[in-house]
Write a protein that binds this DNA or RNA. Sequence first.
RNA 1: GCCGGUGUGGCGAAAUGGCAGACGCACAGGACUUAAAAUCCUGGGACCAUAAAAAGUCGUGUGGGUUCGAGUCCCACCACCGGCACCA
Length: 899
Amino acid sequence: MIEPKWQTAWDQQQAFRAFNPGEEIPASHPFAARHGVAGAVTAAQLPPKFYILDMFPYPSGAGLHVGHPEGYTATDILARYQRAQGRNVLHPMGWDAFGLPAEQYAVKTGQHPRVTTETNIANFTRQIKSLGFSYDWSREIATTDVEYFKWTQWIFLKLYNAWFNPETNRAEAIETLKYPADCITEAQQRAYRDAKRLAYVSEAPVNWCPELGTVLANEEVIDGKSEVGGFPVIRKPMRQWMLRITAYAEKLLADLDTIDWSDSLKEMQRNWIGRSEGAEVDFQIANCQLPIAEAKIRVFTTRPDTLFGATYMVLSPEHKLVPQITTAAQKEAVEAYKNFAATKSDLERTELAKEKSGVFTGAYAINPVNGEQIPIWIADYVLASYGTGAIMAVPAHDTRDFEFAQKFNLPVVQVVQPPNGQTAWQGFTDDGVAVNSGFINGLPTPEAKKKITAWLAEKGLGHKTVNYKLRDWLFSRQRYWGEPFPIIWKKDAAGNLYHEALPESALPLLPPTLEDYKPTADGQPPLARATDWLHLPDGSLRETNTMPQWAGSCWYYLRYLDARNTDAFVGKEVEGYWMGKSEVTKPGVDLYVGGTEHAVLHLLYARFWHKVLFDLGQVSTAEPFYKLVNQGLILGEDGQKMSKSRGNVVNPDDILVEYGADAFRLYEMFMGPLQDSKPWNTKGVEGVYRFLGRVWRLFVDETSETEFEQAETTATDKANFKLLALIALNASIKDVPATPAQLKALHTCIKKVTEDLDAMRFNTAISAMMVFISEAMKWETQPVSVLAAFLQLLQPFAPHLAEELWSKLQALKAGAPATSLPYAAWPKYDAALLVEDVIEIPVQVNGKLRDVIKVALTATAAELEALALKNENVQPYLAGKNVKKVIVLPKKLVNIVAV
RNA sequence: GCCGGUGUGGCGAAAUGGCAGACGCACAGGACUUAAAAUCCUGGGACCAUAAAAAGUCGUGUGGGUUCGAGUCCCACCACCGGCACCA
């Protein structure tokens, strides 16, 4: 009964509304009372902001499991803590509501995905609200709201109408693009412009998943299978929308140093971006009919120092020079191999990876450093999409080249001497000393690289360069339940298709109503079924792809700032206040908590969008999320990952019925460090439930509670919160001054809880409160002031119980006006109250503990040494030995070194 | 293969280089009760010893090292978890 009472009260008061600059603050709101502000105030008049964000959930039909509320509880505790510390706390919640399950359900039943989505959101809302989180629900958003995805489409237009200017090193409006001299006609300029946009169309082979009926981004393909569902993925050439995230590779990498994320997460992003420094080198093709300028093959290598050891070259089967250099004799074999490589699915490519394959083209290239003719092969171990799609093979010092050379009997020439004479040079890939390498002989690898790169540059044969593994982001999906692209397709006079953006005034572009959500018979996306929608009066066609689920989650944290703004995706002043940096506030989101599964997808995409918006002057920080913490997985009671098939899923609803939200919250935090994975144990919930019971019994008079229980069982109205008034406080609670011992217990607890919350050590904070309660239970009288301070510490963890007891305690305080607990100023500890007069000092002999002595705090080093040496438990260990040295750390320990 | 992380009682865990195991679960014993539940109190790393204790020895994945002193720092190895993986 306590929990619904307070949840209702918080709702009615809008207790956790976060106020924007310029927003009307009701004088009756506790925030106004705490900070002495009311009415509309400027950003400068508001207290410093604290933006604490959860990764918003996908509202699935299954509802919450116990993993979701772990992060939410942690952020809620900190939100409440920061509120008590006097911050203006922004703590919002919303829904990542586009997605496949609702669409698949629609395909099966014909029910509109929106209906399914709304039902699921309602269920999630109920579950989340039952946990007593202090979200500002007035800012709730769903990515599927028309008013939300209008702005998602708007941001897409920003990307579409921007290009990355390498000279200024940032994105700029497409209008600033200068055309080359030979770009004259409208069509030429359009083609040039379209090729530069941050959102562009590509015809490249994509990851097609037949089972899901859609393409997937590289990041969504794991081991040749779809991340969702584990279905096979094949490569298929298709026309697709791409986002030029590669233009931001360097910034995405470099700015990791400016944010407070875990090392492992940063490392994952670094690996994904995959920067590598090296050189591009041109190899002339021997005896070639092509014009001299075109008759060369450019390769990328991180080991230019091994150039003397390049004994053959390999092109990817898709390389554009392959048809031109292949000799008549090899034509058939090369064609066959190309077909073989093209039809292989990604999965097969991975499986066949162990065995190298390839075909000789019949052509030769000239090694620029020694003029030797080396054969040119094609092989699928060289990827078309990385570097230049061609390599120089140095079998002696590259594992893959070595395997290939062994299989096809190609020559292997040593050019690096391993530093350790024992190591075989064949297949040695680390740094060493250059040998058999002409003018770089004798140089260690780093110097050899430098010297030969400089030599290549001087001769015009090559230059230093940087490559990234990161690929552009495949941004279109063949789905119904996603944001439609605000794009139309037209034909020019010559009959060529081209695309054009809708004007901003045409937003939002709604998806059409459909009877059938399946793709069309000829493989077109479901939107193509809506012929009325598809065809515009002027003969142009709408784009039928939709955006991926990531689109909505790329910027939701910005919409929360100003969720009901109809004029802009976010107001400028509002954005500046919540994301801005000051002496006390961090730039961007102060704390973002979510699962590690989004390490490279969501977090990379969102950073990319944010950087584009930053370049375009739409937001004020270069990074969206200043501090990020990944909560660990909660495993089932069997220590296995929770899953339906294992039958070890714990439903929070069941725990709530049995133990209540406060115990649930407390247990989730008490299990262990937030970042660690740990198994669920319902018995553990009982432990913290017992603790809350002890808190309750410390405060409450037993007789009155019995009366309440009787009244409750006979009451007709189960939600009659007034019955709670029957419960009286324990007679031992009095408005009297606290004793020194009581103050010491309290302030020890305040110190520990405060420090632990600052460091996000929730489990040890709870244990400190347990220690305090055990202590307080022994007291004959409990001063109101001490218990009130304790309730303030407890409030972030167990807000319902704390509020109820607080409200009763306030009545007992003579004359003091009732303060709203969530806005009561966080207690400060007084270090002077914590000092002991007599302390215990361990005494060691040769590092082993032999006794513990009690001494005055003020005992000097000399006194401690004397006490330790004559200690009777220490004496036996000194017998027959010389005391060589005595280490004395006043207030800490004594260690006697004796031999 | 490469990168990152983690190894502490029966279990979840705690410990600025300074008394290892706080707090909690489970367990055992006791109090209250006709009884049970709830609650309260007590105990608890292992070994050795003992009627019981005290004392003692060992103990933080393994093996070395640094230090007066190591769960904590360094080196090597093992196991598990996560990520990447023909990226030249």
